[in-house]
Design a protein around this nucleic acid. Structure first.
Lengths: 202, 202, 202, 202
DNA sequence: AGGTAATCGAGACGGTACGTCCAGTCTTTGT
DNA sequence: ACAAAGACTGGACGTACCGTCTCGATTACCT
């Protein structure tokens, strides 16, 4: 076979160390104060090695997200039978996660990175939306099958509205209070149209 | 009074030129590649003059947003009597605005800036959410009064869900299609709870 | 007049500090291990300031030579009436100067710099040869006028032979001993041609 | 026997290729821009192979000189019976050699290398002075024996004065003209002392 | 009208980080 | 064991900006 190994094999453990150092820097300093020098030093690596793996700051951050060094944290939505309560619990779990300053800083840094780079944006979408939407979809679809939710529910719309609202709150430094979460759930579950009020329209 | 004017008066027109140059740079290069040097040169100003008005990069960007050099574009929601149609029109208008690459780049840059700086975040919230929420509230409250919408509608929740979803789409480079907008409106207007289906539950 | 001062005036004292730091580095580390970073730090200057004054390492070294931070040390040849003794004293003075390791390192570094760069070579010639040749010429011409030396003496040839021999010795790490100096003077004063032996040929 | 051959034998032809590549780089780029990477690539060798033969850049250059890849060019001084003419021819041959830019660059690079490294200086002396002095000595001694030159001629002094003067000219980029060479020979053959003028001093 | 003082464009200052290049070492597969 | 290939740490390169400071040259108010 022609693709035999030539030269020293690239050190996977160094790569891990770089990603970990990046995550720490990201949480500590934010995206645009990231210093490749500092990351390399913290990882015990040469600067060139960082650049060998990742061609730019944004690619590095993107990989950091994708490899899960920035946890999306919210892989599954519990299933207690009561779908609204499950979603509330999930959103509160998300809110609790963001209540940790370090986590908040990390995700904000990723947001900044995604805003600056198409590449990071793609990874961000892939990791954050896809994962969360999958989790939500799994739970919502079950509820739809049981007749607890409308058959025409657009999972994608619900997922993006919820995630979007949470990230927006994170961005503008408004902690997502229980009140806010309840308002969100009321809107999404009940709808706002007058005809959607149970017992009305009969 | 003691704060009488001494020395040369600060040139308001230079300040305008700085803000305009900042907006252009922001759209062209994004937040973390902003260069005060370039801004000053483009504005025909000295660097010191920039710093005399704004103490830092983030303060400059914040002011840029607040002064409306970054337009929120969506000051009012039309009132045709049909509230759902009005919201659809408003969201489509927003989507059209973002379809212009320059506008999209500009708002993404502001997003990045807000992610990096509490100060910018505050101004961003003040300008973007407040303005849009006010516009939505004005329209929604009218509809509530006419009995077209539920009395318990949480305007804030609706506004943040809609804005959040739109910004999230911007962030992850998914253009907000009509389909997406319709899904969003269906969710928000109809709700997803099975009991919210009109004519069901009888 | 149109050449009015624009911007802050360049700091002459910083320039001096840079040249001094360069000389120290040159003596300590030699030419190709010169580090602009270290020079800047030692001079308490930013790297950019070094590059503002001198576009390259070689230009910096050249200026260092020309400004006399690398002393040619041998400005004048004494005049005791006895020209051969005066030259011997001058050569011994040169040898003593080179016996100091720091001085030797410094001149060797300049030699290396001159070898690598036309620009430095020009300055080196201007400063070292010109100065020494002038000193030698002044002394030799006097002796010629007094009839102590041949009228057809080529000062330039003598100067370059002496300086060349001394620098060559420095280069190959052969200390210029008294024996060597005497051999040199014998050759130059007496000549090697058999017909130049006094009292021979009769 | 204990020094039996173990493993693959070191390739002499690779070593030659390395030295040739070094000479080419030296002539093209000078000493301090030498790149081991480039040399290895040009020689079709691995970097480690270079370091297996030569422990450092300066040792490599030193060896390059010693192996004659940097030609001293002037192995013998012709013997036509007329010693002054022979020396003139030899010096002119040297001058012609240096007139080739590539040769000049090569020797200047070696000079720089010698200035920076004791090791290279030793090899330089060994190869350049020793070889030339031997050539000059062979010729001068013959002339002394024939009574053409003074019996007390210091060959070493003559050799170093001539070589030193030529190298100094190379260093300061002053081509050694016929005029210069003649001045040098006049000085060395005739001497400068008034008493050395033939027919005078009686 | 003349003095005083803050502002202006310009650009040098000490620094920090960039992304590239190279030195010298280490590791892998192949000969 | 040596060879080519190439990844490794470490460190210097020359450039670009940062935010501050210093120029001479404007304005403007205040005697």
């Amino acid at each position: 076979m022609s693709d035999s190994q030539r030269g020293r094999t690239r050190s996977e453990s160094t790569r891990q160390a770089i990603l970990e150092a990046t995550r720490d820097e990201l949480a500590a300093s934010g995206y645009d104060k990231l210093s490749i020098d500092r990351i390399a030093t913290a990882a015990g690596a040469g600067k060139q090695t960082v650049y060998r793996w990742y061609r730019s700051k944004s690619e590095l951050v993107a990989e950091c997200i994708l490899e899960g060094y920035v946890p999306s944290k919210t892989a599954v939505v519990a299933d207690s039978g009561e779908v609204r309560g499950d979603l509330r619990a999930w959103l509160r779990g998300f809110a609790d996660h963001l209540a940790q300053t370090e986590n908040a800083a990390l995700i904000r840094a990723c947001t900044a990175a995604a805003a600056e780079s198409d590449e990071v944006a793609a990874k961000f979408y892939e990791r954050v939306t896809a994962a969360n939407e999958a989790a939500l979809t799994a739970r919502l679809d079950g509820a739809v099958r049981l007749g607890q939710l409308r058959a025409d529910t657009s999972t994608a719309a619900v997922a993006e509205a919820l995630i979007g609202a949470m990230l927006y709150r994170l961005l503008v430094r408004q902690a997502p209070t229980d009140e806010f979460i309840n308002g969100l759930l009321d809107t999404v579950f009940n709808g706002i149209d007058a005809s959607s009020v149970p017992g009305v329209g009969r």
